[in-house]
Computed example of a mutant assay.
Amino acid sequence: MRKALLKIRKYFEYNYEVLIAMVLFIAIIISGLEFFKAIIYMLEFIVIMEVVKMISDFIKKEKLRLRFVIDIFIIFLIRDVIIQASHKNIDYFDISFLLIVIFVFFIFRIMSIKYSPGSSKLKDKGNNSSE
């Protein structure tokens, strides 16, 4: 019995996300909150965290990272898709439009990472060191 408890404890030390998810799930069940509303609230919390991270990064570095802005929009649009999909009268046109916009933002995100000024500096350093 003690060995099993040690294994469980060791598992949760490395996988604390599972423990947090279990606690949140139990809290949702106890509170009686509808599950889709809880998901919406969690996504709104993530949007707020990303906005705070973006503002903090802007204050420290005096630069606005495009990646943070795009991440905020993607998360917010995913939240809207979940809200639209959970309604009784599902509007498939709105959902498909939001999914296309999310896809476009993912392309912008990939391009912002690939063509960011920081990545070109890393490439230049790699080229100079090989010469």
Score class of each variant (00 low, 15 high):
Arg65Val: 04
Asp91Cys: 06
Tyr14Thr: 13
Val101Gln: 03
Asn128Met: 06
Asn128Tyr: 05
Ile72Gly: 06
Tyr16Glu: 11
Leu5Gln: 05
Ile74Gly: 09
Ala4Tyr: 14
Tyr92Pro: 06
Phe76Pro: 10
Phe73Thr: 10
Leu43Trp: 05
Leu66Tyr: 08
Arg109Ser: 02
Tyr11Phe: 04
Phe58Trp: 03
Glu34Ile: 06
Phe25Lys: 15
Ile113Lys: 11
Asn89Glu: 02
Tyr92Trp: 11
Leu64Trp: 03
Arg109Tyr: 08
Phe108His: 11
Phe25Cys: 09
Ile82Cys: 13
Ile102Phe: 06
Leu6Glu: 13
Leu77Met: 11
Ile102Gln: 04
Lys125Ile: 01
Asn128Glu: 08
Arg79Met: 12
Lys53Met: 00
Lys88Asn: 03
Ala85Gly: 12
Lys3Asn: 15
Ala85Leu: 07
Asn128Phe: 07
Ile39Trp: 00
Glu62Ile: 08
Ser112His: 10
Leu122Tyr: 00
Tyr16Trp: 01
Phe12Ile: 12
Leu66Ala: 03
Ile83Leu: 09
Ser119Met: 01
His87Tyr: 13
Ile30Ala: 07
Phe25Ala: 11
Ile113Gly: 11
Ile46Thr: 14
Leu24Asp: 15
Asp80Cys: 14
Ile107Arg: 10
Ala38His: 10
Phe25Thr: 15
Ser86Asp: 05
Val81Cys: 06
Phe105His: 03
Lys121Cys: 00
Tyr16Ala: 05
Val51Thr: 12
Ile75Phe: 00
Phe93Leu: 09
Met22Gln: 07
Phe36His: 11
Glu62Val: 07
Met1Gln: 13
Ser31Ile: 07
Phe58Gly: 04
Leu33Asp: 07
Met111Ile: 10
Ser96Gly: 02
Ile107Val: 14
